[in-house]
Simulated scan of single mutants.
Amino acid sequence: MKNCSEDELQVSCLSDNVCFALYTATNALVRAYRPLLEECDLTYPQYLVMQALWLNNGASLTALSQATRLDPGTLTPIVKRLEGKGLLSRSVDVKDERKKVIEATRAGVELKHQALALKEVLLNKVTLTESDISSLRDMCLTLTEDLTRN
């Protein structure tokens, strides 16, 4: 599905760039998730935060930031919106009063099964095998690790 000009022998196509392929795939994935997440009244970043809590309930803002790779300045308003929806709560850490503990509420935990079923809906839309998807995920994680290493 290349959209290259007649001069493609002289100039590489955008689709030849891994950054372009990752960018367009990410946009397509987020667009595919959007209507499904609307059923759960979640945005994609909110979904990432809830997934992180489902895996590690009672996390600090720092731990959520590391898990979701969202910086704290971006994460804080997302957490506040989710708290406003009654899906999580923030409380003071009993071990360190300077820290907040973020926990999924009962409603947040109940949303887990509905939201995680969305993954199956999306998997049914793609022709990639589970092995392909696993390899793609691993390569993306390796690329992220390589590019963020100090």
Score class of each variant (00 low, 15 high):
Leu36Pro: 04
Leu61Gln: 10
Arg34Gly: 11
Ile78Met: 09
Leu55Thr: 09
Leu82Asn: 13
Leu36Ser: 09
Leu36Arg: 08
Thr68Trp: 01
Pro35His: 11
Gln51Asn: 14
Asp41Ala: 13
Pro35Ala: 12
Asn57Tyr: 09
Trp54Pro: 00
Thr74Pro: 02
Glu83Gln: 13
Pro72Ala: 14
Asn56Lys: 09
Leu53Trp: 03
Leu70Thr: 03
Leu37Asp: 06
Ala59His: 01
Cys40Asn: 08
Arg69Tyr: 04
Gln51Ser: 13
Ala59Val: 01
Asp71Ile: 02
Val79His: 00
Leu55Gln: 15
Ser60Tyr: 03
Trp54Ser: 02
Arg69Leu: 06
Gln51Thr: 14
Lys80Trp: 12
Trp54Lys: 02
Val79Cys: 09
Leu55Trp: 05
Asn57Phe: 10
Gln51Ile: 14
Ser65Val: 02
Met50Thr: 07
Leu75Glu: 01
Arg69His: 09
Leu75Tyr: 00
Tyr47Ala: 14
Gly58Tyr: 09
Asn57Leu: 11
Pro45Gly: 09
Val79Ser: 00
Tyr44Val: 01
Ala67Ser: 14
Leu75Asp: 01
Ala63Asp: 08
Ile78Ala: 07
Asn57Ser: 13
Met50His: 07
Thr68Ser: 05
Arg69Phe: 06
Leu42Val: 03
Glu83Asn: 13
Trp54Asp: 03
Asn56Thr: 09
Thr76Gln: 14
Cys40Lys: 12
Glu39Thr: 12
Ser60Cys: 03
Tyr47Cys: 11
Glu83Met: 06
Ala67Pro: 04
Asp71His: 12
Ala63Pro: 00
Leu37Asn: 03
Asp41Leu: 08
Leu36Val: 06
Asp41Phe: 07
Pro45Arg: 14
Pro35Trp: 06
Tyr47Asn: 04
Gln51Leu: 14
Glu39Ile: 06
Leu48Arg: 11
Asn56Leu: 07
Ala63Gly: 08
Thr74Ala: 10
Ala67Gln: 12
Glu83Pro: 04
Leu55Cys: 13
Ser65Leu: 03
Gly73Pro: 06
Gln46Gly: 15
Ser60Asp: 05
Gln51Pro: 04
Val49His: 06
Ala59Trp: 00
Arg34Gln: 15
Trp54Phe: 02
Gln46Ile: 12
Thr43Met: 05
Trp54Val: 00
Gly73Leu: 15
Ala59Glu: 00
Leu53Gln: 05
Val79Gly: 00
Ser65Ile: 00
Pro77Ser: 03
